[in-house]
Design a protein around this nucleic acid. Structure first.
Length: 541
DNA sequence: GTAGGGTTAG
């Protein structure tokens, strides 16, 4: 959607007032005409023409017209047009009402542009400056805008203060959006839980908001725990709760629970709409039941690009690159136009199966055939593609010539590749550069110290570890999750607090022995390097 | 005119 140029806009605003009659017609006929025109606006041009007309009739201060106007411009994704009229020098702010501001705040809160969402909060301030009282609809809109900011709890807490001040803290809609807003930031999660626990009356929405907060913050295990509590209290989950828990399962690899949720949906007659099927499909695929996912995909009567992408991604993730590429081609054959996410999946497939040429072809096709501008994720896939097969120079060259700033993730991928393919000096150089720019990320230190370990430069290795701890940075320990009889167990590396840890490690060693007996050979590059036995064992585990 | 939702490089 083309946005109107400033010039165009100012033109329409400044031209019309000069032609206004000395006593502007405020008749009902003009008002009705403009309302009808605004209702029917389908293009930006149309909207600008209507703008000119309503200015001509002096309706720029008519609250009814303005509200409709705000709604029409937000439907056309032209928020600038709305606000330049509402807050133009010709506007008579004393005629504004709460409804008008709610419309403007809502349309800005729903925008996918960050700047617009920030503006929603400014309009709330403007509303208070106009001495207007917010009503019960104002806060859910406003909190939604706060929730989608990068740091929601800062300004969100101020809005919370207003919620209390204006007496809406016991409105269930407001309470649910408050929990949603706080749970959007890791630092606000505990407070969100406090609010949740204090809710006198909960609905499936309340539970979904809290479960969704855990999922978004990466605490999928807690999300599942809360869902169990919900079940225990006999609260009926709805479609959205199930979707959220499924995405937690996809994260945890909890296949048994995914299947249980599938039968729960059947048993409770929860409508199997497309988003639910997609969530189930994705969870099955991510948890390793790719064939189950494909079977579900085939019996789904409605499929969206998300369904296709989940299947492609599932195949790619489990090393079935050739099939993934085939499904991608089938998708195009079925007339579904791939989007940026679908290309990430097919590029992932090429990565995981070493299909360098195919990957390059798809990367090229993305822009030349579909006009999709590659994002950092796509460049990341290409770097990974070259890195994995040992084309380190090509990967580096690619990073140096790509038109957007390489992210730390990309540099860390290269460091990993340097380690695997024995390019230790290069890896060291990249790691040091990266540490100069961002000394706070644990895995960069770990990557560098691993490079030194492989080169048997113990002194430098310890130096790196020391630098890390001096800056107060600690390695986040790795962990695995095992699902057994519907229960999810979490194992954290090096954690000896667990009651049965001795047994766990003994079992690990036994598994290691058995794997070797069946003919497992460790990766050659790791073994060819001159490292000591203990590190070798560590690396292999 | 109000709240929660699906696929995204390692």
């Amino acid at each position: 959607m083309m946005l109107p140029s400033e010039k165009h806009l100012k033109g329409s605003l400044h031209f019309v007032p000069r032609t206004l009659p000395s006593t502007p017609s405020r008749g009902r006929a003009a008002e009705q005409t403009c309302l009808a025109l605004l209702q029917a606006c389908t293009s930006l041009r149309h909207l600008l023409q209507t703008t000119a007309l309503l200015l001509k009739y002096g309706l720029q201060s008519n609250p009814l017209v303005l509200t409709k106007f705000a709604a029409a411009s937000s439907a056309l994704d032209a928020l600038e047009v709305a606000t330049s009229l509402l807050f133009s020098p010709h506007a008579s702010t004393h005629l504004y009402d709460c409804f008008l501001f709610n419309t403007v705040i809502r349309s800005h809160a729903q925008s996918d542009r960050l700047g617009d969402r920030r503006l929603a909060i400014s309009y709330f301030s403007a509303m208070l400056r106009c001495r207007l009282l917010p009503n019960k609809f104002t806060f859910p809109f406003l909190l939604k805008a706060c929730a989608s900011l990068p740091e929601p709890t800062g300004v969100g807490a101020q809005v919370h203060g207003c919620v209390v001040k204006y007496g809406y803290s016991s409105d269930p809609y407001v309470q649910n959006t408050l929990i949603h807003m706080y749970s959007g930031a890791p630092s606000g999660l505990d407070f969100a839980r406090e609010l949740f626990d204090r809710m006198p009356k909960t609905s499936p929405v309340t539970w979904s908001v809290m479960i969704g907060g855990y999922v978004r913050s990466g605490f999928s295990n807690k999300a599942v725990g809360l869902f169990r509590e919900m079940q225990g209290r006999g609260i009926q989950a709805d479609e959205i709760t199930v979707i959220l828990v499924l995405s937690a399962c996809a994260d945890l690899g909890a296949l048994e629970l995914v299947r249980w949720l599938g039968s729960y949906v059947e048993r409770e007659n929860i409508p199997k709409a497309l988003p639910l099927c997609n969530a189930l499909l994705d969870a099955l695929a991510k948890c390793g039941d790719v064939d189950g996912a494909v079977a579900l995909f085939e019996q789904m009567h409605a499929k969206s690009i998300v369904s296709w992408t989940s299947v492609i991604d599932g195949l790619a993730l489990h090393g079935r690159g050739k099939e993934a590429v085939r499904v991608f081609e089938m998708m195009k054959g079925a007339g579904v136009v791939p989007d940026g996410v679908a290309f990430i999946s097919v590029l992932t497939a090429c990565c995981h199966s070493g299909m360098v040429d195919e990957g390059r072809r798809y990367f090229h096709s993305m822009t030349s055939d579909f006009g999709i501008e590659p994002q950092i994720e796509h460049y990341g896939c290409m770097v990974d593609l070259f890195s994995r097969v040992g084309m380190i120079e090509r990967a580096l060259e690619f990073v140096k010539t790509m038109p957007i700033e390489p992210s730390p993730v990309i540099w860390r991928m290269l460091i990993g590749a340097c380690r695997v393919h024995g390019r230790l000096e290069l890896g060291e150089r990249i790691a040091k550069n990266l540490l100069d720019e961002d000394p706070t990320h644990d895995s960069t230190y770990v990557g560098l110290s691993n490079l030194y370990a492989l080169r048997r430069q113990w002194e430098k290795k310890w130096e790196t570890r020391r630098a890390m701890s001096e800056r107060g940075i600690r390695k986040v320990p790795g962990c695995s999750l095992v699902e057994l009889n519907g229960e999810i167990y979490e194992f954290v590396a090096g954690d000896e607090s667990q009651l049965q840890y001795r047994g766990v490690y003994e079992m690990l060693e036994e598994i290691g022995r058995k794997i070797k007996l069946t003919g497992y050979l460790p990766t050659k590059t790791e073994v060819l390097l001159d490292i000591d036995e203990e590190d070798k064992e560590d690396a292999l585990h």
